[in-house]
Design a protein around this nucleic acid. Structure first.
Lengths: 260, 260
DNA sequence: GCTTGTCGTTGACGAGGATCAAAAACTTTG
DNA sequence: CAAAGTTTTTGATCCTCGTCAACGACAAGC
């Protein structure tokens, strides 16, 4: 029962695309005459769009389109041209960098409200793979860039977002450089909980759409170490491992391990 | 002789402040009626200022002032209010985060042309300490922020800088998470070489104004490991350790170790 | 010139996490 | 539902790097 309930919650969190989408590489959803349906956008309050005046909002609507990707789809690859920037409206993505010898570093997980292509780089600096079915709101990079120059408010929103990302990246540098395996797992779980809290409200249930390998590649650990640490935390009643995620039992203990 | 030449080059690179500055916590240098002397600024072509029209440039001049700090001075501390943002014009800084238990992560080293306070956060997210005598061009954070809203070109420059910093931070995540001690040292040295190249042109001489401890805290290593690795690289004729820095002998080897 | 403090180096030793191997649990496919 | 592939878990062993300790080099101050 528990397991089924968790599963249902997970589905609510990420949404499920109609099965047809799974067979398509990507399905354009634009209605004729109206590129986006921003009014129905579930994450309006979280995204860059929130910072715009109605008039500016319409301009953005005009140059955007919504797209859906099935789980495991690659949205773009490190080193390739970046004709688009995107705003994630649902689902979860893995952002990773590959070393020449095959070692991989996951530089982040993107959730609804996150923006891909902040840097406005002409080529992608990392690969983005869908961990679940994903919906994004996509804009031509150059069109978006032009709009930025016309709408300082939007530029400001982008700067704030970039600054926030930079802060997160620096925090992650602390985690990678100066923390033990146990502390890494704890700060990862607390971090994910906090991010979901912004989207769906606070909860001790933390969905983990990524594999243990992904978590390891994010934290600079091996799969085995991630698995062992999580098993140990479960044995010590700090967490419970549930299908597709974890339930946090001893949040104070986790926060203490993760504290900055 | 060699050692003296190296020392002289080092002094050229970082400049030497008049000894009087060393005794002052900070010495304001503003000439009356002209807040800055931007025309004589050595790093004009490297800084945000470069992106401005003459008219905008003057506005910036009006709200800024130049300051000098002696080596070892703390420009600001993690957690404190951030009334100013600064552009570094000479010297080198260590940017670090402290964990509650005393462990430290150096999140970066700032060199001429770098901007402190990109995030426009009201409080500082890390501590900045002068590694050498330092000169900065300082602006009130709120004044600068207002100017951004009026001058999209400046905002654009800030966004580009933030994006660039973010990319560097992500590269550093790869280094911290997925590289061996030897590879970490190699990418650090190549990274420093590339940064100095932007400032003073390409050279195999790389000044290292920071201690081994600082390097360790930047790379997620201990002092001892940094020292051992550098000694080993010197023994293997990949580098030469000189006073205040290193000389790169086998750049291809280092680049191979550091390759992304 | 001697002391004191900081920094860099070197050695001996040990531990945390990686590696290797294999089985168990779960998913996807035919 | 069986088969094949993926993901997770667990165990045994190894090794890189951290820890502890000591010493040498150098600079600043008395």
């Amino acid at each position: 029962m528990e397991s089924l309930a968790e599963k249902a919650l997970f589905d609510t969190v990420f949404g499920r695309l109609e099965t047809s989408a799974k067979t398509m590489a990507c399905s354009q959803k634009a209605a004729p005459g109206l590129a986006l349906e921003c009014n129905e956008c579930e994450i309006k309050g979280l995204s860059v769009c929130d910072s715009l005046e109605p008039e500016e909002f319409e301009l953005l609507e005009q140059i955007g389109r919504t797209l859906a990707f099935p789980a495991k789809a690659t949205l773009f690859e490190q080193g390739r041209d970046a004709p688009f920037v995107s705003n994630i409206t649902s689902g979860a993505l893995r952002l990773s960098k590959l070393l020449p010898d095959g070692r991989r570093q996951v530089v982040g997980f993107a959730l609804p409200g996150d923006f891909l292509g902040l840097a406005l780089d002409p080529t992608h600096m990392f690969t983005a793979d869908a961990l679940t079915p994903v919906k994004v709101c996509q804009f031509s990079r150059l069109g978006f860039s032009d709009l930025l120059d016309k709408k300082p408010r939007l530029m400001r929103a982008m700067l704030n977002m970039a600054a926030h990302e930079l802060t997160l990246a620096q925090d992650q540098m602390v985690v990678l450089g100066r923390r033990t395996a146990e502390e890494k797992i704890a700060s990862f779980l607390i971090g994910m909980r906090n991010r979901y809290a912004r989207i769906h409200g606070a909860s001790v249930h933390v969905p983990l759409p990524m594999t243990r390998l992904d978590i390891g590649d994010y934290l600079g650990l091996t799969v085995e170490t991630v698995s062992r640490m999580m098993t140990r935390m479960a044995r010590e009643k700090v967490i419970v491992i549930v299908p597709d995620g974890v339930r946090l039992l001893d949040v104070p203990r986790l926060e203490q391990l993760a504290e900055m």
